[in-house]
Design a binder for these strands. Structure first.
Lengths: 336, 336
DNA sequence: GAATCACGTGTAATCGATTTCACAAGGTGC
DNA sequence: GCACCTTGTGAAATCGATTACACGTGATTC
């Protein structure tokens, strides 16, 4: 409550009549000091309103009790729930969270993982320069997106198989010609989903078409206009993201087509609006809460020294988290 | 590139044949060392791959070059764009960003603003214990939400007036009976918007009704069901948030009502989906990018020592950022 | 030519914690 | 009653930077 100068451990020590070493121990390992001393210290702490100075502790302990989250676009709605999960889990084990757009300058980026402010990284971007990523000597986990050139474990759903779920669902409803609205060309997720789409279509003997896209609402709308102009319109559509799917559906409705009467649309991610949109969106559900939590748990495990041999083996199979298809109102039987 | 132990300033100094003081100066104030020395140092830095240890620098300089953002719910789509703006602006002035849910435990929260890890706070939550907030002795700005008990400047739109815009718009379209779906009882934004709604309705001589809500999609849907059960349904609806409005509209459509044919709906915030929803949502636009940027600029100014007298004057009028009404497809003339 | 100044640099103190090491006091075992 | 733990504590080194202060050099001023 004292509004004077910052109180430091020395002040607490003086007030309690002990040494700073004892105060430090009383706070970080209460069992290592005598009960009477502990009580005196705690009282002095309370009386002075002492709060530790993290910089000093971080310096001495050479760690920051902090995690860094990097994502290519902080305003992306898909990420926000992951941020929340990561922050929650991190906070529960006493770690603070630093967040940054991963598309800041190369040098700034390098510094982030190098300045000792974080002691673990959750990376949601597979598009960074591998040299930068591998240059960091910090426990790091790739979440959702990945890059084979990164020398770090990954965590996420099986995107190839998930795309298959979408195709199987559409085929099961009788759709024989299916369109895929792709994500950005160079994005691993997009590439994997696209391949999963093609493989599943071929496995099911369905006709497959692919339109370019970039995960955004606009690209979905654009694809819808292009789709509307086709002679033989595919009756089933699998979009590489929910935003794209929502854009597609909106534009269809605007163009006077009925969803799912004229065309069935499946999205990917199950973002918050997916079930509130009209029609609600059939989509691939990614358990983002679970993903965020698992990522933190794994980074923390690495921080606590999982044997190096295990963590930096490039061949480590990615940890898999189950994705499921949620059937909603944007898909229905193929029109006759 | 050397993969050996972390290199420190001493190593650079040795390699360059100068003292650590000179290295430090060469890096932080290049003009203060001779050109030849500077060159030697820079080369040594490059050769060793030296990166500063922030903990050491933070300790010595008693600052962290870091901003803390606090929001009541990190996965809220309204905030994500603000986060992005804050991060971008902060990064551009060399600050890193720490993020946390503001509804973590009181003690953890206190520590966040007290442990020297941040030297400025952007607070997006008006519902915290004022004792905690005022206990922090850090430049702090209230963004979007505010609390009169916080002893800190605020930044945001004029919510009272903005609600008026919504009402005026509906009245202008001929609606005489208007429903407001409120936000959480104790939330300042909700309270202010509600009051703005009531005042504007009375000023316009329109009939006003208020339903409870909590900003969520579900509460909007719930309100729609309740609205549908009324004998004399208001024809205009003003929701305290876009999510709520989207929930309301979705549910209306589900119930077979036409928007805006049977009922016109106005939202608040202009989140990303607002213009993609079908029908696209008429809403109050909050310039979140601008808000985030302005907040950072102001905190930074405070950090650099705007005279105390100015920054902690409780009577400082809140900085105002202009909100506008965006007319889209969810509102139309009142049915005859 | 003495006094003064500007400039570049090094030495050492400093930031505020943690942790190693040493040691005193009291308890055990034989 | 001696050797040997165990426990609790303090003194001082340490983490890795920044910076106050002092000093040497050469230029400027009168």
């Amino acid at each position: 409550m004292t509004a004077r100068a910052r109180v430091k451990i020395k002040d607490v020590a003086t007030l309690a009549g002990v040494s700073t070493a004892t105060v430090s121990r009383a706070l970080s390992a209460p069992d290592s000091v005598g009960p009477a001393t502990r009580k005196k210290v705690m009282e002095a702490v309370k009386a002075t309103g002492y709060r530790i100075n993290s910089a000093a502790r971080d310096l001495r302990q050479r760690r920051a009790r902090s995690l860094l989250i990097l994502a290519p676009n902080l305003s992306n709605t898909f990420f926000s729930r992951i941020f929340a999960a990561v922050q929650e889990e991190a906070s529960s084990v006493g770690l603070t969270v630093q967040i940054s757009d991963s598309r800041i300058g190369r040098d700034r980026l390098l510094s982030l993982g190098y300045d000792g402010r974080a002691d673990g990284i959750v990376l949601l971007d597979g598009g960074l320069d591998p040299e930068v990523v591998n240059g960091w000597r910090l426990p790091l986990i790739q979440l959702s997106e990945w890059n084979d050139a990164y020398d770090a474990p990954r965590l996420g759903i099986d995107n190839h198989a998930a795309a298959g779920l979408a195709v199987d669902h559409l085929v099961g409803l009788g759709h024989r010609s299916i369109l895929h609205v792709n994500g950005p060309e160079e994005n691993v997720l997009a590439i994997t989903r696209r391949q999963g789409f093609l493989d599943a279509a071929s496995r099911n003997g369905a006709e497959a078409t692919v339109f370019p896209g970039d995960f955004t609402l606009e690209s979905g709308a654009e694809a819808a206009r292009r789709w509307a102009g086709l002679d033989n319109r595919p009756t089933g559509v699998f979009c590489a993201s929910d935003e794209c799917a929502l854009g597609f559906v909106s534009e269809c409705i605007r163009l006077g087509c009925d969803v799912p009467g004229d065309v069935s649309v499946v999205g990917f991610d199950d973002i918050d609006f997916a079930d509130r949109f009209v029609p609600s969106l059939t989509t691939i559900h990614q358990p983002r809460l679970e993903m965020g939590r698992a990522a933190v748990k794994q980074v923390v495990a690495m921080m606590q020294g999982t044997p190096k041999a295990e963590t930096d083996a490039t061949g480590t199979p990615p940890e898999r988290i189950e994705a499921t298809l949620v059937e909603r109102a944007s898909t229905g039987p193929a029109p006759a």
